[in-house]
Amino acid sequence: MRPFAYTTAGTAVEAVAALAAAGPGARLLAGGTTLYDLMKLEIETPPAVVDVHRVADLAGFDTSGERELVFGAGARMADVAEDGRLRRDYPALTESLWRAASQQLRNMATLGGNLLQRTRCPYFRGGEPFACNKRRPGSGCAAQEGLDRSHALFGGSDDCIAVYPGDWATALVAFDAEVDVLGPGGARSLPLARLHREPGDTPQLEHTLEPGELITRIRVPVTPAGRGSAYLKIRDRESYAFALVSAAVALTVDGDGRVGECRIAVGGVATRPWRVPAAEQALRGQPVSDASARAAGEAAFAGARPGRHNAFKIELGTRTVADAVRVAAGRAVR
């Protein structure tokens, strides 16, 4: 690992100031499960790090609000996953948390840090000698003609098809979450859907935060569809693995058995958290049935662009969305 200068911050304001003072390339360190890991691999080589893992004003969360749920960016994944109200009213959110990583990692990782988790593409993490535009711009993308089983069906470019690996953001994007940030220029908010970038021809740029900005809170508008929600995750083993495919579905069911509000996103298959409005549209107003669930899954994957080894994720994803629709509908208040 390269040497790095270390400072800590006690508040969010201090953190932003410390980050500015630490100079170009400085990074925020929270749980460390992504950044410190990549620093060990020398894929991340920040000259300075500002430790925010004990910033008290980022740590809380409140799921009792009437208009929105509020999550401090420093809250730990494990703690939020245990929240009783959230488990009851937004099972897709808690499932996206406890089905991620291991309990040890969830005890460490923060909600804000997790949003910016970087890809698990083996050509990215493998370092030299693999070509990777994300790691070394201009070097090429080894995955395009390589072992692309884990790679993206959506949002890829000729320069990068690395999957965004997070579960939490996939669930959040279905719920129209907003992200609050604090930076040298003050505070602002943006929709989570606009936090991540598609790779395009600059895959090294993964998010839209300005230099020096810190995520402070994640807010989720209250919705009755939360109760009727599910996050399903299909992996190469039963636990402690990243998604081959995942699906977040939240819906309400009307008195006549038809789907009312409907929110669907898919994970493990796209270069950023991937909401699928076409699937929502296909399901909205339809009676809950195997056929309508399947149709939603098919609509979700209609525009997929598979590579050499990942075409199976179209059918797998279609079925996973359909399963998630069934589970969510089973939970929905009628």
């Binding site: 460390g32 499960t33 410190y36 309990q103 460490m108």
Partner: peptide
């Protein structure tokens, strides 16, 4: 709380 000590910087 259980954590993996390999990904915990000692300074933390």
């Amino acid at each position: 709380r259980r954590v993996v000590s390999c990904l915990t910087p000692a300074v933390q």
